[in-house]
Amino acid sequence: MSLQTTFTPLEGRRLSAALAGHIVGGEVQTHEEIASTSDLARELGAAGYAHGLVIFAETQTAGRGRRENRWSAPAGQDILCSILLRPSVRMEHWARLTTMAALAICRSIETTTSLHPEIKWPNDVFVQDKKCAGILAETFTGETGAYMVLGIGLNVNTDAYPPELRDIATSMRLAMGDGRLLDRNVVAIALMKQIDRLLPLWEQGYGSVIDEVRRRSRLLGHVVKARVDGREVEGMATDLTEEGHLMLTLANGSALTLTSAEQVRMT
């Protein structure tokens, strides 16, 4: 396990050396403070930067998640990063990136700790029944063509949350329970390598990704509620489609497939 007792900053040279030869991390930027790693990745994507660029920040002043929700984290404690991608796969498959990223996060947590993360559809990773990571995948178009920005917030070393988050958020450090800090460089390297390993399965082999995501699903087999197009739906989560969409069986016996939803929760 990658545990330590003193704070270690994210080290650009160390990250670059470990990711040399990989597509993801072919170029690495580290910043002390920026508004948003995803906003910067969007700007650099429009400027023509290469597929696989990774941007890390020790802190963000305007980090965000889905639906423009704020993503905040104490400086120097967690992994806040965005990856610029220029997919060669068909655009109708670009939405698969969120599912692959969730799987990569789970694998990286498991390779660096003894924890057992779960995927909460559509874009969260949970540890010990609390949110530990969030994902935001966005698509943009510029003069160099269409591209994606994959934003990830992974709670690594935060040791306290405000009252409104204590019951719903956790970090890898808190979940480990021994109080020691994890080396974020090791976790970040593991995460980038897992994403790099999964990208070739974006089209061919995506079925194996869904099979593993099913096994790691937090929702399957449970009754869930969600908001879809402004209305609340409730049903038993029975399966994922081949695209990773959530399949529900409603109380009246009818089936409903969710391609996207808000406020997804188990009842």
Rank of each mutant, 00 (worst) to 15 (best):
A137V: 13
I210M: 14
L182E: 06
H93E: 12
A146E: 11
L3Y: 12
C132G: 00
R14L: 07
F140S: 05
H22F: 06
G145N: 07
V186Y: 09
T113E: 10
T139C: 04
E68C: 09
N155I: 08
E118L: 00
L174V: 14
A17N: 13
I55K: 04
A169I: 11
D229G: 04
N252C: 14
Y49L: 03
V24Q: 11
R70W: 08
Y161D: 13
V89H: 03
G151S: 02
L240P: 07
A17D: 14
V233F: 02
A133P: 02
R231T: 03
T112M: 06
P200C: 15
V228E: 01
I210W: 07
R218I: 01
I55Q: 10
D159H: 14
G151V: 07
R64D: 02
D196H: 12
V228D: 01
E243K: 09
L154C: 13
K130M: 00
V149T: 06
A251S: 14
T99K: 09
Q204I: 15
E43D: 07
A160I: 11
I105Y: 00
G45W: 03
P117Q: 00
I195W: 04
Q4N: 02
A46T: 09
R180N: 11
L246F: 06
V89A: 12
R173Q: 13
V54D: 03
R265F: 05
S2W: 06
D183Y: 11
M247G: 07
V223T: 12
A261E: 13
I79D: 08
E68N: 14
E138L: 14
A73Y: 04
T259H: 15
G253P: 03
I135L: 08
D129A: 07
R67W: 15
Q4R: 12
A261M: 07
F140I: 09
D167S: 10
D39F: 03
A62N: 12
T98M: 08
N185C: 10
H222C: 06
P122C: 09
L246Y: 11
F56E: 15
L10A: 10
P74G: 05
Q263I: 08
T5E: 12
Q128Y: 08
A190M: 04
L40N: 07
P122A: 05
L246I: 00
L150V: 02
A35M: 06
N185L: 05
G26W: 05
F56Q: 13
A47H: 03
L199G: 04
T5Q: 08
C106W: 01
G177K: 08
L10K: 01
G25I: 00
L3I: 05
E212F: 02
L191T: 00
S217N: 08
S2Q: 02
D78L: 11
N155F: 07
N185A: 11
F140M: 02
S88I: 12
G52Q: 06
A160P: 02
E203W: 15
I210F: 07
H51F: 02
T30C: 07
G134E: 08
A175Q: 08
G21C: 14
A226M: 04
I152Y: 01
T144W: 01
I105D: 06
I109C: 06
R90H: 14
